[in-house]
Amino acid sequence: MSIRHSLLALLHDQPMYGYQLRSEFEERTGSTWPLNIGQVYTTLDRLERDGLAVKDGDDGEGHVVYRITASGKTEVSQWFAAPVVATNPPRNELAIKLSLAMTLDNVDVEMLLQAQRTASMRNLQTYTRQRREAAKSDSNDSQDVAWILVLDSLVFGAEAEIRWLDHCEGWLRKHRFRTSKSPASHAAEPTNATKEPTR
């Protein structure tokens, strides 16, 4: 995620101070990717250093306000115009875990797949419920619509992960890999069983 471009895009809307930028960012993305305030101020320093934003006085309550420059506006336009391309496959802990499990003797791959499927399904259920509740308001407010699209992205991501797990299991069964190991094997621990979104 480009915090630099995200903050610059918000400054394109209007001049803001650090805490304001953080709260605008979180509100517009449904608090999906929390920012710490240190990250915000470090990024603002770099934007100023690169001539993309400048300090623009204070708001009367001691907050230093930042304003976007002409170069900053160009940078934002280029960011929106350019597709997001992953030059290298993003690091996927689950794929790495499964790859390693397949090469080790004492890991129960079938149990690993099922534990992960259950955890991913719980996430999918929660995202689906939140999506349903968000859509109930039938709002045309751009922030509400943005929140729904963020939830859609999470729904599709969780669905894709479960489909991939189903595919892995089917493929391993079809090729008769021995996936179920002794009871003494490693316990399967789902990769995203925490309460925090992983992507």
């Binding site: 509100e27 449904g30 608090s31 999906t32 719980r122 996430n123 259920q125 929660t126 995202y127 419920r129 939140q130 968000a134 922030q143 509400d144 929140w147 939830l151 999470l154 309460k195 925090e196 979104p197």
Partner: peptide
């Protein structure tokens, strides 16, 4: 099973 934990995965706006 669906979690109805108030500290859901995501906070509402």
């Amino acid at each position: 099973a669906q979690s109805y934990d108030p500290t859901d995965l995501l906070e509402l706006p």
